[in-house]
Nucleic acid binder design. Sequence first.
DNA 1: AAACTTCGCAACCGCACCTGT
DNA 2: CACAGGTGCGGTTGCGAAGTT
Length: 345
Amino acid sequence: MGRTPYCDADGLKKGLWTPEEDQKLLTYIQQHGHRCWRLQRCGKSCRLRWNNYLKPGIKRGRFSLQEDKTIIQLHALLGNKWSAITAHLPKRTDNEVKNYWNTHLKKRLAMMGIDPVTHKPTSTILGSANGDPKNALNLSHMAQWESTRLQAEARLAKESQLRQHEPGDTTNTLAPPRCLDVEKTWQNLMLNSIQGGLHNGSFGLGLGDNGGDLESPTSILSFSKSAQAAVPTVVSSSEFNGVLGADHMNEVYNTQQHNMALDVGDVPSTIQASDNGDGNFIEGIENNLLFNNLDMHSLSTFSTITSTTSTGNGESINADFRSNLNPGQLQAIEWDESWQLYRCR
DNA sequence: AAACTTCGCAACCGCACCTGT
DNA sequence: CACAGGTGCGGTTGCGAAGTT
């Protein structure tokens, strides 16, 4: 990653810093302090390298939930004043915050229907553009969804930390909580909606041939064939109209073949099960799916599954399943590294 | 398996401001 | 005061990695 080393007209080296150069700069600064930056690189490059990477106490790596929130809030207040924003994130550099904003947060806000510049909802624009209020509704759901996701992440992170501070506790055999990543899912939702057109005036989702366009690689709980078998299959189709309850938090997660996915956490959810091997799928769960702390008994709160599907020839099929999932069929939950999800067996 | 595309991010660039002479 | 070099900041570039076709 980065740039290959080369020299400018003055013979000064440019491009990526090597570990040897870092060490040389460190040694130089230890001996001479932060003065006279000119080594074999331009002073600017040396200063940048020091300030952004070599200076002690700099925090690298994944941004925490709190940092995400801080950046978003401060950006709403300050705009692209990265130095001012970074002042509230003492261990981060402005360059890193700026990059993180441009590559992650900006996109995430845009996906949620929030204009990253003004921090105001763009749902009215999107919704009115195609005359469909349901789009605005779904964008609103996404904002709620994201908000709840952030809260869920915070809770999971907190629990993870608490578990780490229990030295004698060896009962925790589950993998650490994964980020509830919704970005790709929403991206696909939006993309499919835009590219595939809207069906019957509602928020359409083209599943395509593989039926697996939706993807949430992390923090999903998957049921094996046996569990899924308890849930009737609805209809065979390559398209459906996703019905997202107006009063409930909804989530749509990918399901791999032969699996039905649930989210982890105490988030009322929507479940989607797609392409279970013969082209069938189930979509839609609402009502208080309180699947807290991977407590299998809480599956009894799994009260309602609703599904509305389009058969592709204009008609829709609605289905309503109540308590069809038998918790007794679940024997174990384990983390599947290859699929990056929890599996129930 | 190869070609192509997209993504993430380290580093560069240009401008404005500061500081020392 | 004028100038040169240093510093701070925000925008942009370009490369390798990862993902997709």
